[in-house]
Write a protein that binds this DNA or RNA. Structure first.
Lengths: 361, 361
DNA sequence: TTGTAGGCGTTATCAA
DNA sequence: TTGATAACGCCTACAA
């Protein structure tokens, strides 16, 4: 049996360098026990032949692929593309690769997850997607750890990392109450997900303990998107004499931005002059000049670190012995959409905001 | 030699189904010649054993990984995260995977490219990054095709797909001239890249043929980012009696947004009332309420299709025989930052804009 | 430190 | 259509 495409293999290098094949392998392995002169000889031969170790073959024989699958549900929400970027950067820095997947709205995450399992990736990060318990147990059987990112788990045996929605919601309620808000509108997100629910809960709990009664709080559905919240706001206040609340809490930033745009364009509302407003996530867009959104930032970097840490730990052996649900606190970001918050001088805050946004072509 | 983790293999399935191992392989291969009853038997056995074909092993044996590497330079620019998403969606739909890489500003793309080559990916898409000619020839030797996305190539032997910067720049010049602009400011992008240069060229050429002399055109450096252009605008007009132009052309949308924010915040400029303005790319953020940016949209979907098409063609055999430089026309998007363009009724345009933006949590 | 031998789990080839 | 057998290119184990 003969192949057409004869690629350069470690055997070719071994022959040229006058060593055995495993020695070539060692030359490319950090901290392998190999004499310096041999390593140099091998590397020289490799360069001469344009040899590149085949990671696929390495994965097969060593049973670790150095690949982590990252499944992103909604790339339309900047929070998730920022998260994906963070995963890529972090893994790249440790010589691992990212196999990236997206799951379109409501589509089954299962097919995609199956693909990931087939590649025998070292771990799977699932962001914002509902996965069936069948697949969860399958992945467990196959021995590939799964971690949920920014998702609290319906299945308590699943490892997950997320930001403290309840605490974060509370921070925003406190800030708005302190700024004098007495009536509130909450714009909800994805009814399927727990994230929206918990943020609302944290917000309402804090208000309750501040003495704000339920009658002062209204909730509407924002569809969890810019367009959805834009429409929701447009429709909600579409009456001859709309009753505007003192404050609006949109459960995520992209929705908050949709609300702001709708309020300004359709109702000529000033923010925070007429209505104060807050979001949740801390996406870069919220820092743009027209918004300066007051929000709670999810500590993406720390969450990514923790997620990969847990995935690696799972890999070490004990498997599903210790599932962990890691909850990190959110960071309150004072913007200009809630009055009386700017401790920092406006220009300084602006500069800081700008610094935090970059982007080259 | 014994392994600890005894995973289910095709042999296990073969034994249970009472067939040979290759038959199991055939059962999982579409259009393979296998009797229906055998396939059913195999699939049943596979399901019972929770068998998943090992794609890594398949890659090794078949010499095709079904993985395409996508190297993204700047995830801070939404254009590139949108592009990455488009690649993921398209490849996923054809049962291929994306190995995602990022290259930080100015860092060497080479190390990352090397990683991709090691995985023997079927092709590599390079977006916004400078790669050395060494690596280009290496990839050619290894037989892995590379395609540049939104990059014109210094190396003319490289396949590339991009939007017609010259034509696009011309469209914007025409629109602004038609709207009455007589004096122009151009905010340049990355001086390294050809993209910015070509867009500026197209813009200036069009102005020249409209009779606008060089003395009416100023160019400044915008650093190719939101922050960079924000600062550039702030500095450029920082004088007791600043001379504002009639029109500003920022070579990409994220910079255009930075310009708008700076003009509004620092100089209280109305757009397009005081100054008209245009960008380039067609990113989602440009559609947000406060901007409604007039721009030229890059046909991302078509560009992605074309890119993958070319990568696949390269793979078919003839290798570097036919390098292709595909240039697709940009699409003029009338926004509200250049007056007199809205052919569509304002509300309808807004709705269309909103529809084009989604995003769930 | 180095080499020999064997296996990782699939697909490709060829004969039946 | 099916099965036996040989690659694919590397890593691991073990002995030297």
């Amino acid at each position: 049996m003969k192949r057409k495409t004869t690629r350069v293999t470690s055997y070719d290098v071994a022959k040229l360098a006058g060593v055995s094949q495993p020695t070539v392998s060692r030359a490319f392995t950090p901290n392998a026990s190999i004499a310096k002169d041999k390593r140099d000889r091998v590397l020289a031969a490799a360069k001469q032949l344009h040899y590149l170790p085949n990671s696929i073959a390495a994965s097969l024989s060593s049973a670790r692929s150095n690949i982590v699958a990252v499944i992103v549900g909604d790339m339309h929400n900047p929070f998730y593309s920022e998260s994906l970027q963070a995963f890529i950067n972090r893994l790249q820095a440790t010589n691992r690769q990212v196999l990236a997947f997206t799951v379109e709205d409501g589509r089954d995450c299962d097919a995609v997850l199956m693909q990931a399992l087939r590649y025998h990736v070292d771990g799977i990060v699932v962001t914002s997607a509902n996965l069936s318990s069948d697949l969860i147990s399958l992945s467990r059987e196959v021995g590939i750890p799964i971690a949920l990112f920014n998702r609290s788990t319906s299945d308590p045996t699943l490892t997950s990392v997320r930001c403290d929605s309840v605490q974060g919601g509370g921070l925003l309620a406190d800030a708005m109450f302190a700024a004098g808000a007495q009536s509130y509108l909450i714009v909800r997100g994805d009814p399927q997900g727990s994230t929206s629910r918990l943020r609302v809960k944290g917000f309402r709990d804090a208000l309750a303990s501040l003495g704000i009664g339920d009658s002062a709080i209204t909730e509407i559905d924002g569809g969890s998107s810019y367009a959805g919240s834009y429409r929701a706001i447009s429709k909600h206040f579409d009456s001859p004499a709309p009753q505007f609340p003192d404050a609006i809490f949109a459960v995520n930033d992209i929705m908050a931005i949709g609300c702001i745009d709708a309020l300004r364009a359709k109702f000529n509302i000033a923010i925070p002059g007429d209505i104060m407003l807050a979001g949740f996530d801390g996406i870069r867009e919220g820092r743009l000049g027209p918004y300066h959104l007051t929000t709670v930032r999810q500590p993406i970097e720390d969450m990514v670190t923790k997620t990969l840490d847990l995935l690696g730990r799972d890999n070490q052996g004990e498997k599903s012995a210790t599932q962990v649900n890691c909850v990190l606190p959110g960071i309150f970001i004072p913007g200009r959409t809630v009055p009386g918050l700017a401790e920092i001088a406006p220009d300084k805050a602006l500069e800081a905001d700008i610094e935090s946004i970059s982007g080259k072509n």
